[in-house]
Design a binder for these strands. Sequence first.
DNA 1: CGAATCCGTAACGTC
DNA 2: GACGTTACGGATTCGA
Length: 936
Amino acid sequence: MSESQETLLLVDGSSYLYRAYHALPDLRNGEGFPTGAIYGIVNMLRKLRSDYPAKYSACVFDAKGKTFRDDLYPAYKEHRAPMPDDLRAQIEPIHEAVRALGWPILVVEGVEADDVIGTLAERATREGVRTIVSTGDKDLAQLVSDHVTLVNTMTNETLDPAGVQTKFGVPPERIVDYLSLIGDTVDNVPGVPKVGPKTAVKWLTEFGTLDNVMARAAEIKGVVGENLRNTLEWLPKGRELLTVKLDCDLSKEVPTFDALIDGGEDKSELVDFFSRYGFKTWLREASGEALPDTRSVGSARKAATPVKNYADNAAAQQQASLFDVEAAPQEVKYETVTTEAQLESWMQRLDEADLVCIDTETTSIDPMLAQLVGISLSVTPGQACYIPVAHRGPDVAGLDAAAQLSRDAVLARMKTWLEDDASKKVGQHLKYDAHVFANHGIALRGIQHDTMLQSYVLESHRNHGMDALAERVLQLKTITYEEVCGKGASQIGFDEVPLDRATEYAAEDADITLRLHRALFPKVEADDKLDYVYEQIEMPTSIVLQKMERNGVLIDGERLAKQSTEIGQRLLELETEAHALAGQPFNLSSPKQIGEIFFNQMKLPVIKKTASGAPSTDEEVLQKLAEDYPLPKLLLDYRGLAKLKSTYTDKLPKMVNPNTGRVHTTYGQATAVTGRLASTDPNLQNIPVRTEEGRRIREAFIAPEGSVIVSADYSQIELRIMAHLSQDEGLLRAFQEGQDVHRATAAEVFNVTPLEVTADQRRVAKVINFGLIYGMSAFGLASNLGIGRDAAKLYIDRYFARYPGAARYMDETRQTARERGYVETVFGRRLWLPDINGGNGPRRQAAERAAINAPMQGTAADLIKLSMLAVQGWLEAEAMRSRLVMQVHDELVLEVPQAELAVVRERLPELMCGVATLRVPLVAEVGVGANWEEAH
DNA sequence: CGAATCCGTAACGTC
DNA sequence: GACGTTACGGATTCGA
């Protein structure tokens, strides 16, 4: 008796409940009873009935109570807000209405509506019945097949397999994989953080299935790749949660599909129902036989719950730690200090302690602007206090912010201890805290240890943030700043954090930092070389850096503003010209739009592609194209000027500190893996110098009235270090004899006498020399010189033939890097190279180049840090008024009063050259001027 | 649903 | 080789 086109119509009643409730205005009947959801559902069922006539049908609702998913994952639907009372009150009436409409209704204990629908659809398919599923829930797209169609009544959208592919970008079979990656906010099922529809489709298209994506997680770069790897353990479970069950036992509820035959509307029931709930129009219709008007309801989706941060540290915890972890304290005791008696008690502890861990909480991450909000201290692991001094806001948890001690009083009481050189302190990134105290007129002294620098010296390639360290070294998960203050626009200042919460966070920081010190410092101390780098270089350097940052540098903002205006004019002209040449307006700053104009419209040849496959428009390409076309040249000019304007002439004046009238960079001391410093906000280490236009920016770096700028830079420092390390006779001789090393190299490579070397040969030799420092390949050299790879190879071969010591050194360096896993500088600074023996080809080659470069770059960094120490030590010992104001890798810049110019000019290079004795002399070149440009 | 925020890419400044 | 900053454009998340 089975017909070929029998149809089963299944309605996901639960998915419509909320939608109907939220989408409709707050409808109420005469008695004030909410009826919006009832109205919506009745309307929808009637419309469905007429749109999709079906032999069998059912309206399915979730039952109350737990399902297998709750057992599988306790947090399932955890953050879902409880059902609003107004909606809850409508549930029973809705069931009643559904029955009166003649719809079979299914509410199965312990089984979610989705699973009931899935199981019935599956059974229907087996029995040759086609299924239409009406739902507002995208999750059910996984059920779609040739026999199962989805319809969203709210949007009137139907989905067949092709429709699913179009809408989601993946076929129905991949929907579960897709959802697993994205996660389901509403049900609190996490996916991979930062992965949304686009990324999920990208991965599934590339790798096929979720299993394949997981198997190849290692290949995915960036933060999302990292997030994926951190969620690997979770994903199978997420997938299980999101997979609709097809095999529920419904033998009781639906023994055969005959149980799902529409009973037809029960007029008397309906009339009764409509009259009880006050649906007057429907009541009239039901009594008067007229067909009801159907009206589709608008869609709305509310009820978004926050994604719970899914912290999965399994990987981190499995990783064997380098560190012996001191037994964690039995008991953790954090105290909020709000009375003088408490403060006195802590001051006594500080006085008695050999070493105190200190940390500050502030109003800003900008060290020069940060105002003190609170101080945390710890002298014993597990015990710490937080002294709030500037919290605002209402009383919380019995801790009245108004009851805190005042900042002035606390600082006055602590000043002696804070400024006492003999009272030893440890902290995490104390350079920052030193600024904070300095902002309140206190010179923090006795800075003995810094856990950030300990970590940096031990493993410079890792993350040295406190949270990361706690996890890696102590296997502890700390409260993050974000957890306390939020993020983005809704982030609050620490002074707004309630005192109890502030104490949990701040005291923990001091406690954890002390424990970190106890774990890290023994590792540093145990190794003579690392101990030297830490105690003799990094720790003292941090003190000098803090002073340099505070000194700041004077900028002629007006001069820069004038330059900005000029450049802006020129940019406008260039833009107009470019638009004319292109025959249409376009954004000259958009590589994408340039690509469209150049390569699609003007049909210029594609010289090379970017990493993502788009035609490149970088300088090299434009240079090449400029030979034959006018527009690329324009663009080159535009790019150069735009960079100058946006990064320098516009930006620098904005960075002037309103209090000091000077620019204060921040040096990153634990940023560059090689030991170099980094400079941010602003970066003063990449101020232009190569072009005429660029150098004008340096003219704006000035000294105050009566002072001048003095600059001293190491000459050929990295090549000298290469000579020292390789002990190559030719290189050593060149430097010992004070030769022009690029000329000497040219003479060797081109087999001429030094005097015969042409300017072009010298230029080539210079590029070769730099290439060697960078561990550069023939390929890199070729592209740098604009020659063929064979020609470049020839140069390199000749070079190594003439400087066999250098060749040997490079080989040995690669070898020891492979054997030990790290390379080191002359002073014993270590750089680990995790990829040197593993990883894929390109990564290993990059590690090899880093292995060559790091000892040279790193030794240079060591030397200039030693110079800074020597210079600052001298200036202080002699009570000079000259000040260090900048460091640019191989250059120190000072602000020098005229009266001290002669002595600085003499002593500065001596100090710099005297910090170490290598197999070649160190040379420092000094320049003096009214501005930085002149000082060169 | 539009706005704000985050992220990756391309490009380019320095040593 | 080592960095930091800019602009853009797309993706994601926020927030009403």
